[in-house]
Amino acid sequence: MLALWRSTIGKKAVMAVTGLAMLLFLIAHMLGNLKIFFGREEFDEYAHWLRTVGTPVLHNAWFLWISRALLVVCVVLHIVSAYQLSRRDLSARPKGYAHRLRPTASYATNTMRFGGIILALFIIYHLLDLTALVANPNGVEGAVYDNVVADFQHWYIALAYIVAMLALCLHIAHGFWSAARTLGAVSSATRARVYKAVAGTLALIISVGFLATPIGVMSGLVD
């Protein structure tokens, strides 16, 4: 297992598995977010329910904390792998070309690293904003709906979220397909097309789903 972790392919596999786990989380997160369109009461109730999932088998909020711990492990492994691989990649070509290499790959592919950094910064901000509530204009614990709505009253906060979701879209569009390949799933050109289509669709659905909230608030659909 240690040899696997040390190898480039092993680290890529770690990125793929953690990435897919985070993707599953994002789908759930996005679906939950959409509850905001059913009004304050239902949304806050949902938010509260998240703390009681798993009871009485688990103690109150344990499920939440276990999930958070797992997510943190995923994020850390994903970032550590990405960091180590990137350093390796950069040192694999210490001197670049005078005439820039002509990329044939997509924009999404070529912006994975940059997009990843944006997402990492966004996650920190997002936690401070809506989990720790220190960066939230409203910042009242339990008033999840109000907190969210308060955020998107400000154009710059909304913009930050929109930019991050576009970055997320690109990240998933290449990331999902790349993860599939890294785990060895894409064994022919035909399947490659299928996986690429699935990746694109997933990326679109997730980012549109997330963008619905700020747009909803800004357009007055949610207030």
């Binding site: 392919i9 890529k12 691989l85 790959a105 290449h174 790349s178």
Partner: peptide, 10 residues
């Protein structure tokens, strides 16, 4: 000392 693959297809 080769880099890792990011499936760019280049």
């Amino acid at each position: 000392g080769f880099g890792g693959c990011t499936n760019t297809g280049e």
